[in-house]
Design a binder for these strands. Structure first.
Lengths: 145, 145
DNA sequence: GTACGTGCAAAATGTTTGCATCATT
DNA sequence: AATGATGCAAACATTTTGCACGTAC
């Protein structure tokens, strides 16, 4: 069953404001991993009051609550993803846009990662690994002749 | 045999200036994947003339030539690595610092990635994958009792 | 009613740019 | 000599902050 955004927020101790709801729902439906500004521009027209600062505040709150992930890019601005499951991303080198690798493809790769090696890394480096960020750096394929 | 920086630059059509040499050699010896500013502060004292703009210009030139990699982080600033071989990174969530996973550990993981899956992703998504960025998101281990 | 979220504007941070000068090839 | 690199300062882009007001609980 699909929970309402209100319920989802309540479960994570997030106040349900009109702005947060609009931002989260738009992010969750988006396929494009928008930047804060892109999300702002998309959501703003249909929301009574919305400022860019609120977008940043909300995205940080969502990430802290585990309802979103922040994806670093090479050009300064970060992108956001409401899908917090482990999955691969394709990053386009010129545009710094990010695309999901469909899970039926990506999971073949993720499932091959030996957990024992990660445990070994944790031990040897003295760290606790609690997330994974796998990006395939790519360019669009040239048209075929 | 180890090539001199001058020879290395010549091979990549990079002019060998005092600033570039100092920056590259410091980056290559560094273990910390410094930001542009960190590198600037490290190299500046021992270099006659050096500006932050030159650091950015040089790092971009090195990346374009394939002698360095730019590593995105979640806090806006990027970090740089003169080791362009495929290897894993550990990213610390609080500090956004980046550490190498020693290759004898990381290669166990990288070698497990099935190249056929990447080829499949390229085909299905219409992209050319020409690099990989694998980050283990981590926190320092708490001291053990 | 209280604690927290919001908008606005300003500030902080990180990176890029334009241009005159200088160094490498 | 010519091409390209440098320094400086200003511009730019992204994100964060402070504070008065507003809203959810």
């Amino acid at each position: 069953m699909m929970a309402t955004t209100r319920e989802l927020f309540a479960r994570h101790n997030l106040r349900c404001t009109a702005q947060r709801r609009a931002l989260y729902e738009n992010l969750a439906e988006s396929r494009s991993h928008p930047t804060a500004e892109e999300l702002f521009l998309t959501v703003k027209p249909s929301t009574t009051r919305l400022s860019l600062a609120t977008v940043y505040n909300t995205l940080e709150a969502l990430c802290k609550a585990g309802l979103a992930r922040k994806l670093p890019t090479s050009n300064g601005s970060c992108r956001y993803d409401a899908d917090t499951s482990e999955h691969l991303h394709v990053c386009f080198r010129e545009s710094n846009e990010i695309q999901d690798v469909p899970s039926e493809l990506g999971s073949k790769l993720i499932e091959h990662l030996p957990r024992s090696v990660i445990a070994e890394i944790e031990l040897k480096l003295g760290v606790q690994v609690d997330g994974l960020n796998i990006q395939l750096l790519a360019r669009p394929s040239p048209p075929r002749g």
